[in-house]
Write a protein that binds this DNA or RNA. Structure first.
Length: 256
DNA sequence: ATGACTCCCAGTGGGAGA
């Protein structure tokens, strides 16, 4: 099966592109972040007309996530982290063909020491505890989305300039390692990849043209699934659109 | 360079993103 994650930065703006991309890639399941739509505005009919089942969870202006599936509706759908009192719509999980799929839009964190950074840390604590629990029930699990964390210096176009900055702080990287410690592996790094592989490029400064970006969108697979992973890649093509999201989709292929 | 762009809600400016 083929799974994908894409921060679309407004589903209202990106829906035509998303439909084109789904037709091209034909994934089995896709998680979206930053839909920026209240639930009443989710384009369920348009996606259904294109052959997609949808589960969604949004809010006004910010955040918002969705889980699209090709063959059947996702089952046992969960919205946000159980037990975490969170006003922000950041997580949607569901079971797809025997795989537990958790799509997440991790908090940005703004700047180390800020209130939003503290929120990010608390959210990451809750996520880790919940994913640990999910793994006991669902050994075949994929955690994918916009992590807003660049795990290593090789995931940053200018690691000196970004040292200690948001997405690159030791605290955020420790949380990423903590998720790996649950028994998850970064699918992208299971394979040889082009150097300077990023999933996000700033809209400003001709950053995409200069390939100045960060790898902050990730697909973590459980150790039970790891032997069945046959590929993982970033699809830069949508970032070349006339009106792109600032993020590119990431895809993983699982043979089982 | 505390910028640059894009999106949103607002309403002709400002917050947020990363």
């Amino acid at each position: 099966m083929k799974l994908a994650t894409w921060n679309v930065n407004s589903l209202a703006v990106r829906l035509p592109q998303l439909l084109d991309w789904l037709a091209l890639q034909q994934p089995d399941a896709v998680v979206l972040q930053e839909t920026k739509l209240t639930d009443d505005k989710f384009p369920q009919a348009e996606l259904a007309a294109a052959g997609w089942h949808s589960a969604w969870f949004g809010q006004k202006t910010y955040n918002g996530v969705a889980l699209l599936t090709r063959h059947a509706p996702a089952t046992n759908v969960v919205r946000n982290i159980p037990g975490l009192d969170d006003a922000q719509a950041r997580v949607i999980a569901g079971s797809v063909a025997g795989v537990r799929v958790i799509g997440a839009y991790f908090p940005n964190g703004q700047a180390p020491g800020s209130e939003k950074f503290a929120y990010k840390m608390g959210w990451l604590d809750a996520l880790r505890a919940w994913v640990a629990d999910e793994l006991t029930r669902h050994p075949r699990l994929v955690l994918l989305g916009d992590y807003n964390i660049a795990p290593e210096d090789r995931d940053v176009y200018d690691p000196v300039a970004w040292a200690g900055q948001i997405h690159c702080t030791p605290e955020e990287r420790a949380h990423f390692q903590g998720l790996l410690g649950l028994g998850l592996v970064d699918a992208f790094r299971l394979f040889e990849q082009p150097p300077k592989s990023w999933s996000w490029w700033d809209y400003r400064n001709l950053a995409f043209r200069k390939n100045q970006g960060l790898r902050i969108d990730h697909i973590l697979v459980s150790t039970a699934l790891q032997p069945t992973v046959t590929g993982c890649s970033i699809d830069k093509l949508p970032r070349k659109n006339e009106r792109p999201s600032d993020h590119a989709p990431v895809l993983v292929e699982i043979s089982a």
